[in-house]
Design a protein around this nucleic acid. Structure first.
Lengths: 212, 212
DNA sequence: CGGTCAAATATACAAACGTATAATTCAATG
DNA sequence: CATTGAATTATACGTTTGTATATTTGACCG
């Protein structure tokens, strides 16, 4: 009987790497880290398991790459369509974008939980993590500062810091609840609560500015 | 050469179970779920690995028991010293207790992340999770309702729901940030931001009532 | 259109995992 | 103080893991 070796087509390494990263994130989110084995990843990607060590130096290397790809996508999601004539409108849109799918998503929450232990131990992943986290926080603080200034409100840097932390917290908390209990909220409800909460924290009205 | 079998003392099954649970939580929080093997647990507890299947029907059974023990401790932490003459004071103390160690703790955050995937798959753990989560949320909503009523404020059940979600979110978010970056906040800062944020969300002053 | 080389597959291997079983030892009981 | 039984240790077993190696194959090039 002749070999039953399966047929395959050659692809560019970049494409194969992307496929393996996507398969890794899918498994990590749906099945969990324990089930994310090299064999499961290869099967999910429709490849043989040898491909992992052919395109990445180790499984850990692949996990790192997957984490980086995921975090980049998350930040991009929050930055999406942050525009508007006024600082107030830009802040409102930033809050809305941060609380809209796919940023708020059971999958994103699953991935966050799956990666956090690796982040704590691996310096490379830790660096990626802190970089993205602080970028988000600074972005929010700048938007809050601009919004306060625009309304003629003055705030010390200490007050500004506390306000940014509180706004960040309410967004994080809603992100967490929305991801953990996706069916517990109506469409658009989390975004609305987020905008109203940030408005209450700042003591300013904060409608989106583009809705009618 | 005679046997080098190690000496041991008999303990009550309950005590051994508690030791194994404590070792499991320590490992889960510090080393992560991947390193929490039956051998590592037994070594952490100072016992032989056979003890796990002698006192629990499987490793999974032990994990379940450890999760239950952890969650019970967390809820107890938030309920601690929730007292006061006024609803406002009780709410302030509830917020404070929810944002104080050991509720806010890198260890608690680690454990939450470690368990979330198991919670999603195992019905028994899911039941434990939802029970404790909803108990917390209902407790908070009741305190918010009482505080509003005390101040002569009226709120529809829909408004109340949204306020409770927002308060819960800011507490969750601060819990998350405090656990993730414990060195980024001064002592008592998270609690203070939490009380001020809940006050701003409700539009009511919310001092602790017992501090001087 | 045959030659070449990386891309792929297939297989093998040592280590570690959860579990099962056998062999001991402590402490209570009469 | 001998007996007994559960608590405990020690060892073994089959499976799965990440990794290493050998073999095959598809596509590009002269």
């Amino acid at each position: 009987m002749p070999s039953q070796r399966r047929k395959f087509t050659r692809e560019e390494p970049e494409s194969r790497r992307a496929d393996l990263i996507a398969a890794t994130l899918d498994l990590m989110a749906d099945a969990g880290p324990a089930e994310t084995t090299v064999r499961a990843i290869a099967e999910e990607a429709g490849l043989s398991q040898g491909m992992i060590r052919h395109h990445f130096s180790s499984k850990e290397d692949l996990i790192n790459a997957a984490y980086q790809a995921h975090m980049a996508g998350q930040l991009e999601g929050s930055e999406r369509s942050v525009a508007g004539d006024t600082a107030r409108a830009r802040l409102a849109r930033f809050v809305t974008a941060s609380l809209t799918s796919p940023v708020v998503d059971p999958r994103a929450l699953s991935l966050w939980a799956a990666f956090i232990h690796m982040v704590r131990r691996d310096p490379a992943m830790r660096a990626t993590h802190e970089e993205n986290y602080l970028a988000y926080r600074d972005r929010l603080e700048a938007l809050v500062a601009a919004t306060l200034a625009e309304s003629g409100r003055t705030a010390t840097s200490e007050e500004l810091r506390r306000l940014a932390i509180a706004c960040n917290a309410v967004i994080d908390g809603l992100w967490l609840e929305g991801g953990a209990l996706p069916d517990a909220f109506a469409a658009g409800e989390i975004e609305a609560i987020g905008r109203a909460s940030v408005a209450a924290l700042l003591g300013l009205p904060l409608d989106d500015g583009t809705e009618e």
